[in-house]
Design a protein around this nucleic acid. Sequence first.
DNA 1: GCACAAGATTGGCATAGACCAATCTGGCCG
DNA 2: CGGCCAGATTGGTCTATGCCAATCTTGTGC
Lengths: 237, 237
Amino acid sequence: MSELPKYYVYKMRILEMIADLPPGTLIPTERTLALDFGTSRTTVRKAIGELVAEGRLTRTQGSGTYTGGPKITHVRQLTSFTEDAQAIGYTPSSEILEIEQLHVDASHAVEAGHMQLTPGAPFVRIQRVRLGNGEPLGLETACIPGELEGFEERLRERGSLYATLREDFGIRITEVEDGVETYLAGPEEARLLKVEMGSPLLRIDRTGFDDGGRVVEWTVGRFCGDRFRFVARTRAA
Amino acid sequence: MSELPKYYVYKMRILEMIADLPPGTLIPTERTLALDFGTSRTTVRKAIGELVAEGRLTRTQGSGTYTGGPKITHVRQLTSFTEDAQAIGYTPSSEILEIEQLHVDASHAVEAGHMQLTPGAPFVRIQRVRLGNGEPLGLETACIPGELEGFEERLRERGSLYATLREDFGIRITEVEDGVETYLAGPEEARLLKVEMGSPLLRIDRTGFDDGGRVVEWTVGRFCGDRFRFVARTRAA
DNA sequence: GCACAAGATTGGCATAGACCAATCTGGCCG
DNA sequence: CGGCCAGATTGGTCTATGCCAATCTTGTGC
């Protein structure tokens, strides 16, 4: 591979083309660009596809392709999603998809393993979409060990998972460990996060501990790679 | 999108096919699979492409497509890459590509901004590849403010950037902030990291601070998404 | 003037095929 | 037996095209 792939060359040309355009600006159609560049539409689609994955463009079937805005949100460990988003002028919200009271069986091997639960042990599973300015940012599936009476009503009331755990159940999460990896959107993520199949997401597996070092949270988060950034800060011991 | 895309269905079928195979096992060729599945080679390539991005498969032009191993390394903040890799049975190494003594000019706007340097200020830039078991894991470009006499010789001697800064220059990095995002491999990363163009990487921007809160390091890391995982652990204040 | 339907436009997905580059295998020669 | 070369094979990239789904625009009827 001594030469640059064609699609990459056109990707760079489109980048130059949109460099000074404000977010939300319509760019020429795929078919027009293919004619202008003298290349196939498939090649143009690939160039645009990468720019969409990077958040530099967004595209809507039947409508067109538009310049995207800056990557505009991040989340820090152990600060509130709400506070972080608001700090950068972003209106955060959450949408609860499902809350289940469960008992560990064979299908929960992964969750149980992370929370060190034995078969039959109770836990709560919460699935929600995190939004910013009304747009999906991420999909989280949180598991909390324990019976947690009336959990659903209280969480719907308070909105915040950590606040509910602390105020209503006396569970304080004092330490978290996050594992961060790339992840490709499957059908569920594409649907719920409104992203293209196969687009790169940031997957964050979180383990939350209480004062005694017990695992009190296991959360799998999948966040839109084009809009989201994870920040962690650590002091040396 | 009420039905699953064809490529995704075949992706799942290939996953089932390779579920119990040991790493390094040759799977049928793209052309064979296209015939077997009764679909086009392009569709098969897309299914395989995602499995390659996830590290479940690797493919070599002229040779074939092989099952991949588990995602086998991670890095924690403020622990040594060497220690972390060895802890999971991985032989770590680094290859220094370039070390430059520079002075801030217009082309260094991003670096200068992060390190709060004024035009003309000296800094050192180090570009290296991080390897595990001889295979590239990531590409790092580190910038250190200051004149740093004899830095290159000392780093080549010690191998470790942090150890060199501490022992030879009295610079202790006591706090780091990492920003983690998805990133698509461009030509440089594809070449140096031996990954496919456009494959998803984990980009980690690191700012290192000394005791006085001064910025003493700005490093841009790009790590292979199919092999790498970033881990951060934080206690509540 | 507003609402609805039809047609046009645009992106989404897949096919079939061509050609090139990298790797592997087998055969030949020293 | 080992090394080298040629041919076969496999992945890498691109083209041209077709068809479908989602959105937008325009025209018609009330």
